[in-house]
Computed example of a mutant assay.
Amino acid sequence: MPAQGILEEFNLAATEIAKDPSRIHLWQPVIAKYWPTLITSCQHAIDWSDTLLRRCLTNCMMKDEPDAVRVGKIDKVANLLGKQSTSKSHNRHISQDVATSLGLSVVRLEEDNALQDLVLTLHHALTITFAHTGAVKIIENHKGVAYVQKMEIVKAG
């Protein structure tokens, strides 16, 4: 769920209604679709995502950086990648140059033929799977345990 987008929309509604109460009738159908606890759940999802980002960068990619340097780099990464207001989209492409300028460690596929072959093989396998099955989401761990979410395909006729 686009938690940050939902919160931004909710805050926009609150601001517009506070400025001009006659706008409540425009926002009421939108806000009526929100279930109880949605706003709180969105905030929890955002907080958890930020915690995971910071923990992973601190304990893995940037673990050898001095604290003062690491905190600054992580803040820059979190501000670009972890906020919809700056990235504008969850699936927005971030170039290798931008990622590197943020302090992220980037392996260029073109410089590692074995890695490039593995990534492209996986990409092609998933592309074919999604195109020819009802699968819409696949998550698999390093132990071969997989979760596959499927969409039921109903043929008319």
Results as ranks from 00 to 15, higher is better:
A68S: 06
A3W: 08
S85W: 08
V119H: 05
V106D: 02
D47T: 12
P21T: 10
A99W: 04
V30F: 10
H132C: 07
H132V: 11
I139S: 12
H132S: 11
P21E: 08
I6L: 11
A13W: 06
W35C: 03
L26E: 15
T40K: 15
I128Q: 01
M61D: 11
V98D: 06
L80G: 05
Y34S: 04
D112N: 15
I138N: 01
V119P: 03
Q43H: 12
I128H: 01
G134F: 09
K83S: 13
L81C: 14
H44M: 08
V69M: 08
V107E: 13
P21N: 10
S41F: 12
I39C: 05
W48D: 13
L118P: 03
T37L: 04
P66L: 06
V106Y: 05
V98T: 10
E140R: 09
T121D: 13
A18F: 09
N113Y: 09
L120R: 15
I6G: 01
I6A: 03
K19Y: 00
A114P: 00
K63T: 08
S49Q: 08
A131M: 12
G144R: 10
H142T: 14
E111H: 12
R23K: 13
A18N: 06
A156S: 14
H142E: 07
P29F: 03
E65R: 01
D112V: 05
K83A: 06
E65F: 04
E111A: 15
I138W: 03
T121K: 15
G82N: 10
K19C: 02
D67L: 10
E111Q: 15
A45H: 05
D117L: 09
D97P: 00
D112G: 09
L80K: 05
L115I: 09
I153K: 07
A131D: 13
K73P: 04
Q28L: 15
D97N: 12
K88I: 09
Y147D: 01
H123Y: 07
C56Q: 11
I138Y: 00
G72K: 04
L102G: 04
T100Y: 04
C42Q: 11
V154R: 11
H123K: 06
W48R: 15
S89V: 01
P29N: 00
L52C: 06
N59R: 13
P36G: 12
S105P: 06
L122M: 14
V148Y: 09
M1C: 09
G103Q: 06
L104Y: 10
Q149I: 00
T37K: 12
L7F: 04
D75A: 14
S101W: 05
L115C: 03
I153F: 05
R54H: 02
F10P: 00
A135N: 05
Y34E: 03
Y34T: 01
I17F: 08
A78V: 07
S22Y: 08
V145Y: 12
N113M: 13
Q149M: 06
R23W: 00
H124A: 13
D75E: 14
V71M: 01
A78W: 01
S87F: 02
T15D: 12
E65A: 02
L81A: 11
T86P: 04
N141F: 03
K137F: 13
C60K: 05
I94H: 03
L57H: 04
F10E: 08
M61N: 04
D97K: 15
W48Q: 13
R108C: 11
L52N: 08
E65L: 14
G134T: 05
Y147I: 08
S95F: 07
Q43L: 06
D97C: 10
K88V: 11
A68G: 00
A99V: 03
